[in-house]
Design a protein around this nucleic acid. Structure first.
Lengths: 173, 173
DNA sequence: ATCAATGCAAATAATTTGCAAAAAG
DNA sequence: CTTTTTGCAAATTATTTGCATTGAT
């Protein structure tokens, strides 16, 4: 699966999607937009608009807060970044690696991290409910706010394991 | 349906819970707080802080916006009102009739209404996921954003049926 | 050249807060 | 009387916007 083209390279792939989106919508490829894209893809985790501003400026000092805010919707619409609203008064974002499976968020109030987990069943569930109401799903989110048991050293806040690994993805009965 | 005790009377029941909570926390029973409680329970549906201000003022003209905002957390903590954050830049609230079952929200972007539906399975699902991560659930939400098929007159936006009725609650195989 | 995109600073809008006056216990 | 609560107006904070200038095509 390793090709010399962007196939199999999530970031290059996303960048292509981003540029294609810009072209298709008569939006211009500017240094700032590229820097912001680059910055987003340099973050491993979830980030805020303010984070993105900081990281973007390390790549291109001219990037302004306004441009970050104006670029974020473009990143979201081009499906290179996903918006993750956990109910705080600011939004989180994370790169979109184009998984097929529906993602749920587990927000740990103890360590303040957000874990993304595959929840394909949820997608089916939401769709079923919507259909019964005669509606069509636009988007859905399952959000679990949780806290660490301070006595439990095996919790995901302490160990450095991936959520997928701990949950045993794919092994739904 | 008119009982003289609070048994079976959700509103009286909630008011008792509210007052008990105030007492327990050395908070005073003021006219404004009672008016705000009363206003919340006069709304059938979801309401915003601003809505609540408007309704409260019909009961007690002296209620101020600040007091509404200061009272809302008390209503939430006393479990007489539930906070429903659908990702807009303001929050919704709804009276808490103390259902045992976990509630999911279906937000219709076409008619701009929020439907609450029983989703007991979801509660189990979230708990299971959290446990596998070594965490303890604090709260969870399943949110389905949906739109009406404009051709479909049978959708819940058009007919006046209850979500529960349309979904056929309880009939999970 | 043309028109979109930028940075800046000011505007928004929901919610929060400081403070002196009013009310509850 | 003592302490909490109130209304008011000003503060806060994430995000948005107007505008003159810069930059992509």
């Amino acid at each position: 699966m390793n090709e010399r083209t962007s196939e199999g390279n999530p970031k290059a792939n996303a960048q292509e999607r981003f540029k294609k989106f810009l072209g298709k919508n008569n939006l211009r490829v500017t240094n700032q937009r590229l820097a912001i894209f680059e910055a987003a893809y340099s973050v491993k985790d979830h980030f805020t608009a303010e984070d993105l501003l900081t990281f973007s400026r390390k790549i291109d000092t001219s990037v302004s807060r306004a441009t970050v805010y104006r670029t974020l919707p473009i990143l979201v619409e081009s499906e290179t970044v996903r918006e993750v609203d956990v109910g705080k008064d600011y939004k989180y974002y994370t790169v979109n690696l184009h998984q097929k499976t529906f993602q749920a968020q587990v927000i740990c109030v103890s360590c303040d991290k957000i874990f993304e987990i595959d929840a394909p069943f949820m997608e089916w569930y939401g769709k079923t409910v919507a259909e019964k109401l005669g509606l069509e799903v636009v988007s859905q989110r399952l959000q679990v706010t949780a806290k660490a048991d301070p006595e439990d050293p095996a919790c995901i806040c302490q160990n450095n394991r991936s959520p997928q690994e701990m949950i045993g993805a794919g092994s739904h009965s």
